[in-house]
Amino acid sequence: MVQHEIARRLLDSSEELSYDPVREVDWDTPLDTGLHGASPEWCTLYGTSYWAEMTPDQQRELTRQEAASVASTGIWFEMILQQMVLRDFYAKDPTDPAFQWALTEIADECRHSIMFARGAAKLGAPAYRPRRHVVELGRFFKTVASGEAAYAAILVAEEVLDVMQRDWMRDERVVPFVRTINNIHVVEESRHMKFAREETRERLRGAGLLRRQVNAFVVAVAAYHIVTSMVHDDVYANAGLDRDRALREAKANEHHRSMLRSSCAGLMEFLESCGLLTRPALWFYQRANLI
Score class of each variant (00 low, 15 high):
residue 1 M to Q: 15
residue 2 V to M: 14
residue 5 E to D: 15
residue 6 I to Y: 10
residue 7 A to F: 13
residue 10 L to A: 05
residue 10 L to K: 11
residue 17 L to V: 12
residue 20 D to F: 15
residue 28 D to G: 08
residue 28 D to P: 01
residue 39 S to A: 09
residue 39 S to N: 13
residue 41 E to F: 04
residue 41 E to D: 13
residue 52 A to K: 15
residue 52 A to L: 08
residue 60 R to V: 01
residue 62 L to R: 07
residue 63 T to E: 03
residue 68 A to S: 15
residue 83 Q to M: 10
residue 87 R to C: 07
residue 87 R to V: 00
residue 89 F to D: 03
residue 98 A to D: 12
residue 101 W to V: 07
residue 108 D to E: 12
residue 113 S to N: 14
residue 116 F to V: 00
residue 119 G to I: 00
residue 120 A to C: 03
residue 128 Y to S: 03
residue 134 V to S: 00
residue 137 L to H: 13
residue 151 Y to M: 15
residue 158 E to S: 13
residue 159 E to D: 09
residue 160 V to Y: 08
residue 171 D to G: 02
residue 173 R to P: 02
residue 176 P to K: 01
residue 178 V to R: 11
residue 179 R to M: 03
residue 181 I to S: 02
residue 181 I to V: 14
residue 183 N to K: 11
residue 189 E to I: 05
residue 191 R to S: 02
residue 191 R to M: 06
residue 193 M to L: 05
residue 199 E to F: 13
residue 203 R to E: 07
residue 203 R to S: 09
residue 211 R to P: 06
residue 216 A to H: 11
residue 237 A to K: 14
residue 246 A to T: 07
residue 247 L to S: 11
residue 251 K to L: 06
residue 253 N to G: 05
residue 257 R to G: 13
residue 266 G to E: 06
residue 274 C to E: 10
